[in-house]
Design a protein around this nucleic acid. Sequence first.
DNA 1: TTTTGCCTACCTAGTGATAGATAGACATCA
DNA 2: TGATGTCTATCTATCACTAGGTAGGCAAAA
Lengths: 181, 181
Amino acid sequence: MPLTMKEKILIAAEKRVRSAGFSEMSFRDLANDVGIKSASVHYHFPTKPDLGEALVARYAEQFKSELDKIDRNDLHTALESFVALYSNALVLNKSICLCAVMGAEAIGLPENVNQRTKAFFEMNKTWLETLFTRHGVKDASDMASLIVAALEGGMIVASSSNDRSMFEQVAQTAIRSIAAA
Amino acid sequence: MPLTMKEKILIAAEKRVRSAGFSEMSFRDLANDVGIKSASVHYHFPTKPDLGEALVARYAEQFKSELDKIDRNDLHTALESFVALYSNALVLNKSICLCAVMGAEAIGLPENVNQRTKAFFEMNKTWLETLFTRHGVKDASDMASLIVAALEGGMIVASSSNDRSMFEQVAQTAIRSIAAA
DNA sequence: TTTTGCCTACCTAGTGATAGATAGACATCA
DNA sequence: TGATGTCTATCTATCACTAGGTAGGCAAAA
């Protein structure tokens, strides 16, 4: 089955949001991307908040399914895989994690979108906390929060500096700090 | 001496950017805030990138002067003061660090603005690295990068969750991880 | 007298959103 | 079978509004 128009729109929207921000993405651009008119985009997503909510929900869902694939038997390997997921989300000069963008824009965003973003962060923290608890890492909850924050922040710093290595430095240091704990 | 119009505009702009993002801030809003017309704002800052650049430069300068006031003789106290500076920048439901916003929006922002943002992060990292080196913390450079990323990321997570305690959790865990190193 | 700082008035190019129409698919009923 | 009705997905056209930016004028200060 080929992609539905709704899916095509979401794909185009994710690309635009991640590379220019939610407020910079317009229905007209999306319409152009997928080859319909802007009014028709409103048919699929009545309002912009509706689109935003669907977008983050879809992103979180896909991310979750990637997380579920990671083998959690070895702490270090699992952590490296986790970081790799974030690393893949950081394509220099092109895009960063959707939720890093949404998080930074949060204050000016509709509440329903923010709740989805929050859920994304929570999901990541929970996954890490479970991993840490399982491998006897101390302060599992605190460390999980630290790692998520560091990775999201690392992306932002790297993005504004246009220097991917800044993210890698943060990521590796974060992993090491877990090993030390 | 009272505030010049230029300063008044910068103050209004900072408020708006930190609470809604750079792209959401308009010359009309600023003009309204300070009681002049939007055309007159263009007199002081010809283009929006010009304003953005001045804004980040001013923010970094003020932040720097706060950093300089911190007593660096005791590692823990200095770190707490450092974190407090970030904490002050996070006023829930109102604003986060200017450079966290700018960093997240980086991809869609003019290059001159990004360079200023980069400089802000560099300044913070350098300050921390100096502190760490002085107190014999291992991997001073890596740890400095980690702390800055964690604090910026922590702000974003806390902001989208509208839960200040998330930032505090990240900040305290970050400090503890330094003590452990 | 020139510069400074602001004004009015305007432009072009967008924005999200809505109304109303239409073509085609499909199902139900006479 | 053929007619009727309804749903889906799209269209055109337009709304009211906001964006950044510009031209030209005017008054006061240097």
